[in-house]
Amino acid sequence: MRFSEDEYAAFASAARGQELSDGAYGAQVCMAHVQGLDSVEQEVMRDLLKTLMLTAVQVRKIGVLFDQVATRENAAGRQAERFIAYAVAADRTLRRVDELAARVRACLP
């Protein structure tokens, strides 16, 4: 492909905006076109995927914190059953976030 300077600048800027190399971005745009997705839809899906991945990290941290609190409570001879319900809820939430992220990822070329 040949681009004018202005076209290349716009193309390269879009690639950088997606944190992709020019070649990877070009291939992705072509595949999106073949699959009937436009670049706006792709960008929204990528943003959603990034948000879900960040959410999963935060939920994992919450689970680790609950585990640490429960360990301290048990070490001090106190019952930590009340924390178990929170840990179970965090685990269930993490699984749901991971499942949703996998579904979004499957929609991207």
Rank of each mutant, 00 (worst) to 15 (best):
A76E: 05
G26M: 14
D91Y: 03
A106G: 02
M1T: 04
E41K: 14
L100Y: 12
Q79S: 14
D22N: 09
E7W: 04
E73Q: 13
M45G: 04
L108Y: 07
A85I: 04
L52H: 08
V104P: 00
V59C: 11
L48G: 11
T51H: 15
F3H: 15
R96V: 00
G23F: 01
G17Y: 02
R105C: 04
C107D: 10
K61I: 09
I62K: 09
L65E: 13
A9I: 06
V57K: 11
A80V: 01
A14F: 01
L100I: 13
A89R: 12
V88H: 15
S39G: 02
R78M: 07
I62L: 13
R82Q: 13
Y8W: 11
A14L: 05
M53S: 12
A70W: 00
V40F: 10
S13A: 08
L94S: 04
T51A: 15
D38Q: 11
F83I: 04
D47P: 01
T71M: 05
M53D: 11
Q18W: 03
V64M: 07
G63K: 10
V104E: 00
E99F: 09
A87S: 03
D98Q: 15
S21H: 03
R16V: 01
D6E: 15
R103E: 13
L94A: 09
E7N: 06
L48Y: 09
V57Y: 06
G36Q: 12
S4G: 07
R78P: 00
D6R: 15
V64Y: 05
V57L: 08
F83R: 14
I62Q: 12
K50E: 08
A85W: 05
L48V: 13
S21W: 03
G63F: 03
Y25F: 14
M1Y: 03
D6P: 05
I62Y: 07
E99N: 14
Q35M: 13
R60W: 02
Q58W: 06
F66D: 02
A101W: 10
E43K: 11
Q79R: 12
A9N: 11
Q18R: 08
R95Q: 06
R72T: 03
A9P: 01
A80M: 02
R72L: 06
V69R: 10
A102C: 03
R103P: 02
A10G: 00
A10C: 00
Q58I: 02
A32K: 03
